[in-house]
C-alpha cells in the first residue's frame, strides 16, 4: 500500500516537474530550438489559407504566420502549418500543439477571457452580409421579409441573423446547411433566396459563379467580426512578439515601407526616426522583444507589408476583389491603427 502511494506520488511529481520544466522554457525558445513555428490555420478558406498544388500554403492568414516565423527564426518558410477545424482549433492552441492560431477567428469576450487566450490584434475586420440574386430585386436587407435564407448551422451567423430579422420585425425561413460548398450549390439551385455569411466569404463565393454580375451583396453588414491571430495565456513575451509583428506589418504600410523599398530603407538610418526604429537602424526595440534588431525588417520582407499582403491575397486585383473598407489605414478612413514604435 505504502509502496503504491509512493509510486503514485512519484508519478505525479515527475509529471508536475516535466510540466514545470515545459512552462519555464519560453515559447520563443521552444520555437528556436525546434526550428519551426507551429501555426494553426484553417483546413481551407479562400483567400485566407489554402494549399496550392505543391502543398505550399498561401493566403492572408498564412502571411501572418510567415511574418512571425521570419521575425523569430529568420526564415518565412520555417512554418509547420497545422490545419485545424472550427472544433479543434482552441484545444490545439490550449494544449500547446500549436504556438499561435491564425485562423479567421472572431475576437469575442468569452474566447479572450473564458478560454484564456490572448488576441494580439485584428488582421481583418469582417462582418456578416447578405447575397441575393439580382432577379430578386432587393436593394437592402430590410426588404427581405419572408425570404428563405441559406445559413450555416451552429455558427454565430445563425444567431446574428435571428437577431437582425427580429429587430426589424421581419420573418424568414432558414435553410440549414453545413459547409460553404454546400451553400453554393443550394443557393445556385434556388433552394434559398439569400445566402448569408461573412462578407469576405460571400465575395469569394460570388467570384466563382458563372455570372457574378447576376448577384449582389447587400449593403447591410449586421455583425462585427474582428478576425485576428491569438496565442494562449501564460507567456506574455510570446504574445508581444506576435502582436508587434502584426503591428509592424500595419505600421510599415502606414509609413510607406514596402518589400520593394525595404532593402534601401533598412540599409542605414534615414530621415524618418520611426522607420529607423521599426527597421532596427536606430534604437533597440528588437532587443526589448528578445529578438535581434532586424526582426521587423524580416517580417515585412516575408510577404510585404499589410497592404501588400491584402492586395496579393484578397485585394481588388484578385478574383475575390475585396475593397479595403474598414481594413484601410486610419489615415484613409479605416480602422487599422498600429500603436507607435517607440
Amino acid at each position: 500500500m505504502k509502496k503504491t502511494a509512493f509510486l503514485g506520488a512519484l508519478t505525479v511529481a515527475s509529471i508536475a516537474a516535466s510540466a514545470a520544466v515545459a512552462q519555464d522554457v519560453s515559447t520563443v525558445d521552444q520555437i528556436k530550438e525546434r526550428g519551426k513555428l507551429n501555426c494553426g490555420v484553417t483546413t481551407g478558406l479562400v483567400g485566407f489559407a489554402a494549399p496550392d498544388a505543391n502543398g505550399t500554403w498561401n493566403g492572408f492568414d498564412v502571411g501572418v504566420c510567415r511574418a512571425v516565423a521570419a521575425a523569430v527564426l529568420g526564415d518565412a518558410n520555417a512554418v509547420e502549418f497545422v490545419p485545424t477545424t472550427g472544433k479543434t482549433r482552441f484545444t490545439a492552441l490550449a494544449s500547446g500543439e500549436i504556438d499561435m492560431l491564425a485562423r479567421n477567428t472572431t475576437w469575442t469576450f468569452s474566447r479572450d477571457v473564458d478560454l484564456k487566450f490572448e488576441f494580439v490584434g485584428v488582421n481583418y475586420y469582417d462582418g456578416q452580409g447578405f447575397m441575393v440574386s439580382k432577379d430578386l430585386g432587393a436593394s437592402s436587407a430590410k426588404e427581405l421579409d419572408g425570404a428563405t435564407v441559406c445559413i450555416q448551422t451552429g455558427t454565430t451567423t445563425e444567431l446574428n441573423l435571428a437577431d437582425f430579422f427580429r429587430a426589424n420585425d421581419m420573418s424568414y425561413e432558414p435553410v440549414p446547411i453545413e459547409t460553404n460548398a454546400e451553400a453554393q450549390q443550394q443557393y445556385l439551385a434556388g433552394a434559398c433566396d439569400v445566402y448569408t455569411t461573412d462578407a469576405s466569404g460571400l465575395a469569394a463565393t460570388r467570384a466563382t459563379f458563372e455570372d457574378p454580375a447576376g448577384h449582389v451583396l447587400l449593403p447591410e453588414i449586421i455583425s462585427k467580426e474582428p478576425l485576428g491571430p491569438l496565442v494562449r495565456h501564460g507567456d506574455n513575451n510570446w504574445g508581444d512578439v506576435v502582436r508587434w509583428t502584426l503591428n509592424a506589418l500595419v505600421s510599415a504600410e502606414e509609413l510607406g515601407v514596402t518589400s520593394a523599398n525595404i532593402g534601401e530603407l533598412g540599409a542605414s538610418a534615414g530621415d524618418n526616426p520611426e522607420i529607423n526604429r521599426l527597421l532596427g537602424t536606430e534604437g533597440n526595440l528588437g532587443e526589448m522583444l528578445g529578438l535581434d534588431a532586424e526582426w521587423a525588417k524580416r517580417a515585412i520582407m516575408a510577404g510585404g507589408n499589410y497592404g501588400e499582403l491584402f492586395a496579393k491575397n484578397i485585394g481588388e486585383d484578385t478574383p475575390i476583389a475585396l475593397a479595403r473598407g474598414l481594413n484601410a489605414q486610419w489615415t484613409e478612413g479605416g480602422l487599422l491603427y498600429s500603436p507607435p514604435f517607440r
Binding site: 479562400v46 489554402a50 494549399p51 497545422v82 490545419p83 472544433k87 460553404n180 460548398a181
Partner: peptide, 19 residues
Amino acid sequence: SIIGLLDPLGLSNAIRADQ
C-alpha cells in the same frame, strides 16, 4: 477530416479553398 487531418475529403475542401 473532422479533426483536421487532410484525408481525401479534407483535401477536397482545401482544394476548393483555392479560388
